[in-house]
Amino acid sequence: MNDTLPGTKRLLITWLLLMVLTLLAMASAQLGSQSGWQPLPMWVIAIVLASAGFKAQQILMIYLNLRVSSAGWKGSFVTLLSATIMLIFLAYFFAGLN
């Protein structure tokens, strides 16, 4: 049972990845608008959302150890995450058109 748990190295790499992605999202949101608090370009919104989705996926697969589960469960959780991110992106996309 213990060998299904993620190892120390894997946990540390995941944590580092999550931290870097958080900093990247913060930087993207700041860099996206050169003159203060302007609406972000769509590509920045896409990057920040994709980064958030990937972080959530990493927490599911590594921290919650869903990677040892069946393909069906992994697919279900990833589909739920992807659908949520996609619907949020569409809302921002349509808001940007107005």
Binding site: L18, T22, A25, M26, S28, A29, W37, Q38, P39, L40, I45, V48, L49, S51, A52, G53, K55, A56, I59, L60, Y63, L64, T84, I88, Y92
Partner: peptide
Amino acid sequence: TAFWHLVDLIWVLLYPLLYLLR
């Protein structure tokens, strides 16, 4: 700890939505 990771997971989606995306 599974519950605690869930709390993590929710926050990583909540943070960009409320604080970053505009």
